Structure formats: C-alpha cells, structure tokens
Amino acid sequence: MRAILENGGRIRVLVLDPTDDVLIETAGRRISQTLANGRLRQRIMTTLDDLTTLRTRTTGRLEVRVSSRISAAGFNCLDASGQRGLISVQQLARTRRPVFSESFGPELDRAIENAADLFVTGMARNSFVNNHYAKLERLLKAGTVIRFVLIDPESAAIDAAASRYYAERSPASARERVRHTLRLLAELKSATEGDLTVRLVAHPIAVGVIAIDSRPDHAGPLSAVFAEYFPASRSSSSSPALPSGIGRSSTKPKRCGTTPHPMT
C-alpha cells in the first residue's frame, strides 16, 4: 500500500464504524463465534490508526470511510476499471465456523486409555509426557507400541521452532524441554522394557500429531488423530494459543528424515 501511494496511486478503504455498538455486536456474531465485541472494535481502531499513519508518511491519496451497514462480502479491487483489473471477493458467511481449542481435554485421555499403538510428533511434547507419564508406563507394560518423533535439540531447527511455536520461549529453553522429554522417555523405556522408540528430526515440525491405533493391524472405530497446527510466526507481544483439531485415520503416519535416538 505504501508503494502504491508513493507512486501516485489512489487507495480507498471502507470499514465498519467502530463507534456503533449495535453494528459491532452484530458483525462480531457473524464474523466469529469466539471474537468478542471489544476485540473486533480494537481491530478496526488499529486499522484506522495504521491507515492514518500511512497517509501522514506518504502524503498520498488515501481515502478512509466508515460504514453503518454490514456488507455480505469483502472486496479488494485493483485497477477495477482497466483491462488488467482484478476484483477479489470474500464472502462473509453467517454459518458457524469450526472452533479451535487450546487443549484436547478428556477426549484425548479416553482415546489413549486402551491404545494398541501410539504415534506422537512435536517439538518437545514435554507437557504431554509429564501429564501422561503414569498412563504411558501402564500402556508400555501392557504391550502398547509407542513411537515419538521430536525435534533434535542439537539442530538449528530448534531455533526456528522456538520462534514459530512459542513466542515467549527461547531456543535454550526449548532445547532443555526436548532434553527433559528424552530423559523421561528413557526412564519409561528402562522401567518397563516396553516397545518405545524415539526419533529426532532436524526440521521445525509445523504440525504436532498424536495418532492412536493408526497402524493397519490396529485400525478400528477408536482410531483417532489429534493434531496441533503451529503458525509460521507469532507476535511477541501476545500469548500463543495453540489451535487443535480432531480427525479420524486408518492409515499409518509416514516418518521421513528422522534419526533414531538411543534410549539409554
């Protein structure tokens, strides 16, 4: 936008009137079932502040208006009157959107209660191992096959992972969490002599997975995949919320480019 203004272009922006309480409340319900009125109003105010700053710094032709009506669609128009113009339309549906949760809750506990095999990926999975240590010990003693794929704490990937997944976590802290998980898993392996293996990957894993009974010989109605998606970047000023989702799978997860970790 700055380049457009500095090169003599014209930009016009239309946003909702942030001072209209009824309008903001109605728009908030349509846009997201989890977005509070205050947050929507703040987003609009922040946008207006940014546009004001942009206009001041560029002295360009930037026109901003506020609307008292909620549009059914959002429009981005580039040179709309010309032959090479482009119009992008985003429909603002009234249907409810899926909601991501910050934790899997009791459904994960129920799913792994009698798992025949467990496949877990992530940066460190420190909280998962700590919170389910006794259950993992019982599963291993019962013959459950457990596989972990974690980020190699000695690789450069841990630096990217610490920045990508956890805004307030330093690379040193992330490395220590992985090492602590490895120590806990080694203890589990030693105490149970169960079928537990760990592989390390030199790649900043973007999706953490907990797959239950995903092997073909164990697949059944209780098979499940719990996934956490970690965005590529996060604001350092905000507390991260880890979106989670639940899916069903009967295929074996693939493992590529991993290095076995000695369970000693």
Score class of each variant (00 low, 15 high):
residue 74 G to D: 05
residue 192 T to S: 06
residue 98 P to Q: 06
residue 187 E to M: 08
residue 155 S to H: 03
residue 104 F to G: 00
residue 135 K to R: 15
residue 147 R to L: 02
residue 75 F to I: 15
residue 186 A to P: 00
residue 167 A to I: 06
residue 105 G to K: 03
residue 156 A to W: 05
residue 137 E to K: 15
residue 139 L to W: 01
residue 93 A to F: 08
residue 147 R to C: 00
residue 169 R to A: 03
residue 135 K to I: 00
residue 183 R to L: 02
residue 112 I to T: 04
residue 149 V to H: 03
residue 114 N to P: 03
residue 95 T to S: 08
residue 80 A to Y: 02
residue 81 S to C: 12
residue 84 R to A: 11
residue 157 A to W: 10
residue 125 R to T: 00
residue 138 R to E: 07
residue 113 E to I: 03
residue 132 H to Y: 06
residue 204 P to F: 08
residue 163 S to L: 10
residue 168 E to P: 03
residue 120 V to S: 06
residue 103 S to M: 07
residue 144 T to Y: 02
residue 153 P to L: 13
residue 88 S to E: 12
residue 110 R to Q: 15
residue 121 T to G: 03
residue 156 A to E: 15
residue 121 T to M: 02
residue 126 N to G: 04
residue 81 S to M: 14
residue 112 I to M: 03
residue 87 I to Y: 04
residue 200 L to R: 07
residue 97 R to C: 08
residue 179 R to Q: 13
residue 94 R to W: 03
residue 129 V to C: 10
residue 208 G to S: 15
residue 121 T to I: 08
residue 132 H to G: 01
residue 89 V to W: 02
residue 198 V to S: 11
residue 151 I to D: 13
residue 90 Q to D: 13
residue 97 R to S: 13
residue 168 E to K: 07
residue 208 G to Y: 05
residue 99 V to S: 01
residue 186 A to T: 13
residue 114 N to I: 05
residue 140 L to E: 03
residue 150 L to T: 13
residue 94 R to A: 05
residue 132 H to T: 00
residue 171 P to I: 13
residue 184 L to Q: 14
residue 180 H to G: 05
residue 85 G to D: 02
residue 105 G to M: 09
residue 115 A to Y: 09
residue 146 I to A: 12
residue 115 A to C: 15
residue 175 R to P: 11
residue 118 L to C: 08
residue 138 R to T: 13
residue 194 G to E: 06
residue 208 G to D: 06
residue 197 T to Q: 05
residue 161 A to E: 13
residue 144 T to P: 02
residue 143 G to L: 08
residue 150 L to H: 12
residue 163 S to F: 04
residue 83 Q to N: 06
residue 84 R to Y: 03
residue 150 L to V: 11
residue 119 F to N: 07
residue 143 G to H: 10
residue 125 R to G: 00
residue 103 S to F: 07
residue 199 R to P: 00
residue 170 S to I: 08
residue 186 A to S: 15
residue 179 R to F: 03
residue 194 G to T: 01
residue 189 K to C: 05
residue 204 P to W: 09
residue 182 L to K: 10
residue 160 A to V: 11
residue 95 T to H: 01
residue 135 K to C: 00
residue 186 A to V: 02
residue 171 P to V: 09
residue 195 D to F: 00
residue 81 S to H: 11
residue 191 A to G: 02
residue 152 D to Q: 08
residue 135 K to V: 01
residue 144 T to N: 01
residue 208 G to F: 06
residue 191 A to W: 07
residue 113 E to T: 12
residue 141 K to C: 11
residue 188 L to D: 06
residue 120 V to M: 07
residue 96 R to I: 10
residue 114 N to G: 04
residue 130 N to F: 01
residue 153 P to V: 10
residue 203 H to N: 10
residue 175 R to T: 03
residue 174 A to Y: 07
residue 172 A to G: 06
residue 118 L to K: 05
residue 170 S to Q: 08
residue 87 I to K: 10
residue 122 G to Y: 05
residue 85 G to W: 09
residue 160 A to R: 13
residue 162 A to Q: 09
